[in-house]
């Protein structure tokens, strides 16, 4: 990772964190404040991104939405990736027959498209923020688990570990000194790429009316509201969407700089 990429990544992450943790610094207004007289105001100096059907300021809402959107994305990634790391590692390190069984199950789960799987889970649990996190987490886990498994398996069969065996190191030392540290970096890349995807999936659920309910300033929910007024107020859809794209692109760029492959998602 080059120096410039490092600095850029840190700056970008810093901005997102600032938006998520202290949105009022960037947008002092109230994201939920209604002002019907100013409904459907075009983007301008008074309202950078315009206002929605109830006169709420879109700029304020996009900034304040960062917290929810990112938190849902992070939580879903943590759940999916945590599950994936556990399953993938077990599969990679266990004897052939167990590995085969886990692999088959993962393949079966992978056969259901992610969003369909998420919808399936929500059909069981009912809509809401919590179910959306669980749904996105669970539906992305099988794909990640397969990657984690193959990554650890490659490491496990590497000449590096063989050399360590020849030097007489115990299994625990090999795992601690070589396997875990060398598996971490690609996993970090994968997690970064995954956050971008999770934010998108979570927003998709809100967009479909199954995640965060309105009028909360969550990006997907804002897009869902904007859809109704697409011909009337394009700014209602444009800016929350740009925010999602920005997060996803940043996550991809940072993930790739960390050595992640696009192929992996």
């Amino acid at each position: 990772m080059s120096r410039t990429t490092k600095i850029c990544s840190i700056v970008v992450i810093g901005i997102w964190l600032l938006m998520a943790l202290a949105p009022s610094l960037l947008a002092p207004g109230d994201p939920l404040a209604i002002n019907p007289t100013e409904a459907f105001a075009k983007p301008g100096f008074a309202h950078f991104f315009g206002t929605d059907e109830s006169g709420r300021d879109i700029y304020t809402r996009v900034i304040h939405g960062a917290g929810d959107s990112l938190a849902i994305g992070l939580a879903a990634t943590a759940l999916g990736m945590g599950l994936a790391i556990v399953l993938g590692t077990i599969a990679a390190l266990s004897p052939r027959w167990l590995d085969e069984i886990i692999l088959r199950v993962l393949e079966a789960l992978y056969a259901i498209p992610s969003l369909l799987m998420a919808l399936l889970i929500i059909a069981f649990t009912g809509p809401g923020v919590g179910p959306a996190i669980v749904a996105v987490g669970l539906s992305t886990a099988p794909g990640y688990a397969r990657l984690v498994r193959s990554q650890i398996r490659t490491l496990k069969n590497s000449e590096m570990l063989e050399a360590s065996t020849v030097l007489g190191r115990s299994t625990w030392l090999k795992v601690r000194n070589h396997l875990i540290p060398n598996a971490l970096k690609p996993l970090l890349a994968l997690v970064t790429l995954g956050i971008g995807q999770a934010v998108i999936w979570a927003a998709a659920l809100s967009f479909l009316g199954l995640g965060t309910p309105p009028p909360a300033p969550e990006w997907g929910a804002m897009l869902s509201a904007g859809r109704t007024y697409l011909h009337l107020a394009w700014w209602m859809s444009l800016f929350p969407g740009l925010a999602i794209v920005a997060v996803a692109v940043c996550a991809t760029l940072i993930g790739r700089a960390l050595g992640g492959k696009v192929k992996s998602l």
Binding site: A203, L223, L230, W234, L238, G241, V245
Partner: peptide, 22 residues
């Protein structure tokens, strides 16, 4: 990278705004 990162639900809206509304 941008194309790959754009969510369908937003791209659809943008395309409608551009080619249909505008």
């Amino acid at each position: 990278i941008i194309a790959a990162a754009v969510p369908h639900f937003w791209l659809g809206a943008v395309l409608i705004m551009l080619f249909s509304s505008a």
